[in-house]
Each structure stands twice: as structure tokens, then as C-alpha cells.
Design a protein around this nucleic acid. Structure first.
Lengths: 339, 339
DNA sequence: TTGTAGGCGTTATCAC
DNA sequence: GTGATAACGCCTACAA
């Protein structure tokens, strides 16, 4: 195992001082041509690279971005992470990921851990636990210490910082309008309980608005709130059994495919009898059978924009910091066979 | 913006030396009860935490693990990342993620970047680019410098290090045997070209072995090699048009659902006419219609094992390092409606 | 042209 | 009981 190359090692080798080596490697004109070349060549051959940790300590910046996410399994979060990583890499930043597992406690621990010098700034989406608890002191704490935070998707107005959100209201409004324009009248929504996610609530609002704008009365029987991502199939079946439904708007792609399955089980065809549209244009939608028409959230774009906001702020030079902004990423509908 | 709390700050506050503060916070008996309490309380109130970077520099360890992955969008990789993160967090390590985007170049750059003090060790899966190129100098380089590497899934025997792999051969053997036991005779495989992935090759071998063991002749017409994850639908259709096929083994879940779709398009029902089984028990399989029977790779377990191997080695105290091991994670079949 | 000294934040050793 | 000093690796203003 070769010894680690440091300035000190090199300086010993040539019996010069550390600063001479440092300057030589930076091509400083202070150092003689001869010494410079000699040292540079040696460094190249021995693959010298300055130690990141030492640089971080000296420069007081790590060139690391901390990402705190609820989980990574859903396409939405992994695509956002991809977007962040790719943009950050371009600008010379690494990405440190911590998962909160939807719990307040892990979110707090992770952030305190990272805030302690490991990173220059945060990009995060609130865990369900945090949204439920409504406690944001850990985030304010970090911001007060001068560490910028960018929140995306699951945000709160209780914290002032840069934000990137999709217009959930608009997205669901468009989706439902899309069904209405197809001539569907009895449109159901599969959503989540309000306490679980700020996002589900807004999508429900968009749904209601689209209906009333079209002169269709909102029927509470057609609003189904599912507690669990992977359960609740019975509730969907009941929806079809007890109501005449010709259109379904689902706030996740998983709910959407469940709807298709449940409808088929009731002898209803998709899209002939029931038109189904989902939120999140993920891998499920693409591989679904029939292919699922969805509202795309453009996850990678969200990630990229969040990373851009953060890095711009980190590298901002000047007197007065720019005000906090909230960027909206617009959704768009990807048409497939389910509508 | 409050100033950052450091030992120096605290020492100024009480007009004592930095080392006194350091000792007081460590509850050293050298320091008087009174001073200790005073300093500890102040530190707690002002939420003092030692700076990670300074600790890293001093201790020569970062408590960070570098993960280098081809991508994050497939369930397999995101579940492995989840497994690593969760285990690492338990043992006090953070996780830094870099994506190679399946290219050799980004893999090299990322590793050189991280190897420079940012992390204590690597967990990685080879990019397709690297597998194709067969150039592993960047990995050996890192290992030579004394930084442990654990490879998983896409590994190479050209590099000596700890490895965690699933038994692709066994997994596909079992899958095909499963179809045979159902009475299927004309079983096709949807796989990838050999140059694309070492993994596809082994799965093909398992397929062949299962057939010959059952006395079924291998028919090259039933071996379909798809170049692209999201293309190649026509090739699958052609398979059904030109051959009588009653079973399909697909090496990815995406291929599997494509097979179901293509079969249905040809008027074949799944599972009655064609039984389909896929590799990777991801979100696609769960939401597919009909639900897809799959070979589960237990991604989180792979991640956890890889993290355990790495951290055990990092924290190994003793004279002779343990030998490199290769751990096999066994696959298992998850039965759903497609078979 | 080269070297010295100080500092980034922490800890450990040793001196007072 | 407390403090000074050195060290981790790097950079830079300043001195020689």
C-alpha cells in the first residue's frame, strides 16, 4: 500500500519547503522554472491530488450538497435525486443523501449530522412525520446558522427559504379537465388523507375546481382517501361497485394502476368504460397495461432547479443576498392508452 | 445569522484556553467540576457540535461511504442504496452518491474525486461502459492506496476485493425450472447482448442449463437479445409471431411486462397461454396487470451486506486483514398472477 | 527564488 | 486544574 501523497511528502523528497511545493503546483511565477517542472512532474507521476478534507477546512466549504429525502424507492424521488446529482456534478459539487424514512426523528438527526460541517447547503423534501407534527425548528436552526436550504415538493410556508414546487393544483385541474373534455361526467378521485400530505390536499382542490368550473357537482362519494400506498384495493373496488364511474383521477401512479385492475375486476374496460389518469409519470405508468396517461411532474427538472437555486446562492458574491424565491415547475400530460 | 460555535468561541467567552473547553466537554476529570458544568451548559444552550471536517482531518477518517452507481431510476439500484443507507446510518456513517450514468468516464472521475479524502471506502457497481472497456485501473488504484472497495452485482474477477452478488445463474435456473414444472415446453428468454452486461450472460446460461437438465433442447430462436431497455417491442412481437411460445423468462421486469403486452396483442392470454416470469421484484412487477411473478434479488439485503462488509473492514482492528470474501445473496421467487 | 508563520477546528501530550 | 504546543493537509501573506 503506497503512502498517501501530500505536499509534505513531496517537499521531503526534494528537500524544499511545503510552500514551495504548493506554489510550484499552482504554477506560481515565484518559483523557478526548473523547480516547478520538477515538482509538477513528480506530482503527476505519483498522482498527487490535494486532500479534500484539508481544503474544506481551509476554505470553509465542502462542495457537498446534502439531500434529505423521505425515501428513494418512488420514481419521483429517485428522478429528483438524479436531476440534482447531474447538475451538481457539472458545477463541481457532490451529493450526500440521507433518508428520513418519512419520520420526523430521522429527518432531524440527519440534518443535524450533516449541518455540522459536512455540507454547504441542503435540498430537502419534508417527511410525512414532519408535516404531521408541524415542527420545523430543525430547519430554521440550520438556516439561522447561515446554511441555505432549498425545499421541494413537500414544502411549508412556515419556513422561509427557496422552494421548488410543482403546481399540484394546476396539475390536477388539468388532468380532470382532460377527462371532462373527453366527455366523462362521473369522475372519481383517489387521493390521500389530508393529514398525510399537503400535496394530496391540493390535488383534491384542483379536482373539485375543475368539476365545478365545468358545471359538474362534486359528489363526496367519488372522493376516495387511501391511507396506504399499497393497500386500499377494496376501497377502490367498492367505489366501482357502489357508483357509476366513468373516469378516475389518481394522485399517484400506483393508485392509478390499482384503479385499472379494480375496474377490470368489475367487468369494466379501460379506457372504453372508465378513463384513468394518474399523477407522476414514472416507470409504473410506462410499463402499465394499458399504458397509463399521466401528469408528469418532471422530477429531474425539479432536481436541477433546486440544485441551481442552492448553488447560485452558495456562490453568490455581493452584498445583499437575493430574496427567497419559489419556482413552479409546470406539469404536463403524457397521453397513453388509459384515456 | 448567529456565529458558528467553536471551541475557540467558547473559550473566549469564559476566558479560558481552548484545551480547557475541549476537556470540559469531554467530561475530563482534569477539569474542575465547576468549570466543566459551566462550559457544558453553555455548549448545550448554544448547541455546540464539533465540526465534522476538523474531526475528519484529525482522525483521518470521514465516516462517509462513497457509492458509485450506474443510475438510480431502476428499482434494483434504489433499493440497494436504501439498504446501504439504512445500515450505514446505524453504524454512524453517511452515504455519498455519485452516478456514472453507465459511462466509464464518469465512473473514473467520480471515484478519483471521492477517493481524495471525502470518503473512507467505496461500494460500487460497474457501469456498462466499464464492463465493455474492461479497464479497471481506477479501482485498483483506489485499493492500492488503502481504500477498501466493495463491489456488488456488476463485479469483475479482475479486481480483488469484497463482493456481494446474487447468483444470477441459480436465479434464472430456478425461474426457468419453475416454468418447466408448470408444464411449459417452449420457453423463450428475453435478455441483453453479452457485451452489455455480465449479468445478462449468466442469466442466459442458467436458462440453458435448466432446459437441458429437463431434457428440453435449447432453441436459439427463442433467445431474444434486446439492445435497449425501452425499445425492442417489435422483436418480442416477432418472437410470438414466428414461434409457438408458452413461457417467457425475462431478465428484467420491464422486458417481462413488454412480453405480456406483446402476447396480448397477438391474442395470447397471460398466464393461460403464456406464462411469464421476470427478474427483479420491483415496483413494476407489483403494479403490473396481471401481477408479475418474479425472481426477487433482495436489493436491500445486498445493500446491507455490502455496507456491513465495508464497515467491518474499515473498523477492523488487528494485524492481518481478513481475506476478501464474496457473498452470495440468494434469489427467491415471488409468485403473482403471470404464471 | 525560496522559506516561515499562522490559521481553518479539533484532540492529545506534556508542561506549569 | 489549566494552558501551551503540535499535528492533521493545505494555503497565503509576508519575510529573507
Amino acid at each position: 500500500m503506497r503512502k498517501k501523497m501530500t505536499l509534505k511528502e513531496i517537499s521531503k523528497r526534494f528537500d524544499v519547503s511545503i510552500s514551495t511545493v504548493s506554489k510550484a503546483l499552482k504554477d506560481s511565477p515565484e518559483i523557478s522554472e526548473k523547480t516547478r517542472k520538477m515538482i509538477q512532474e513528480f506530482a503527476r507521476e505519483h498522482n498527487y491530488k490535494p486532500n479534500n478534507i484539508a481544503l474544506s477546512l481551509k476554505n470553509q466549504q465542502t462542495k457537498n450538497i446534502g439531500i434529505v429525502l423521505p425515501e428513494l424507492q418512488h420514481f419521483f424521488f429517485s428522478s429528483i435525486t438524479t436531476g440534482i446529482e447531474q447538475y451538481a456534478a457539472q458545477r463541481g459539487y457532490n451529493v450526500i443523501i440521507c433518508l428520513s424514512n418519512e419520520t420526523f426523528e430521522k429527518e432531524v438527526i440527519n440534518m443535524q449530522m450533516l449541518a455540522n460541517g459536512s455540507i454547504d447547503g441542503f435540498i430537502m423534501a419534508l417527511s410525512q412525520g414532519t408535516e404531521r407534527k408541524g415542527d420545523y425548528h430543525h430547519i430554521r436552526e440550520v438556516i439561522n446558522r447561515g446554511m441555505p436550504v432549498v425545499m421541494f415538493d413537500r414544502v411549508t410556508k412556515e419556513v422561509e427559504c427557496d422552494k421548488v414546487i410543482i403546481d399540484d393544483f394546476e396539475g390536477s385541474y388539468d388532468a380532470v379537465k382532460y377527462l371532462i373534455d373527453q366527455g366523462r361526467k362521473r369522475i372519481a378521485i383517489l387521493t390521500m388523507p389530508d393529514y398525510m400530505s399537503s400535496v394530496g390536499l391540493q390535488r383534491t382542490e384542483g379536482y373539485k375546481k375543475a368539476l365545478t368550473d365545468a358545471g359538474i357537482e362534486v359528489d363526496e362519494n367519488l372522493i376516495v382517501k387511501l391511507e396506504d400506498f399499497y393497500e386500499g384495493f377494496e376501497d377502490i373496488e367498492k367505489l366501482f361497485q357502489e357508483n357509476k364511474v366513468d373516469g378516475v383521477f389518481a394522485v399517484t401512479e400506483f393508485f392509478a394502476v390499482s384503479a385499472i385492475k379494480a375496474a377490470q375486476k368489475q367487468g369494466l374496460n379501460c379506457p372504453e368504460d372508465v378513463s384513468v389518469i394518474g399523477f407522476t409519470d414514472g416507470i409504473i405508468s410506462r410499463s402499465s397495461n394499458p399504458g397509463l396517461t399521466t401528469v408528469s411532474q418532471h422530477g429531474e427538472e425539479i432536481g436541477e432547479r433546486a440544485a441551481r437555486l442552492l448553488i447560485d446562492r452558495l456562490e453568490f458574491e455581493g452584498d445583499d443576498e437575493p430574496d427567497y424565491t419559489t419556482e413552479y415547475v409546470h406539469t404536463s400530460i403524457v397521453e397513453r392508452e388509459s384515456t
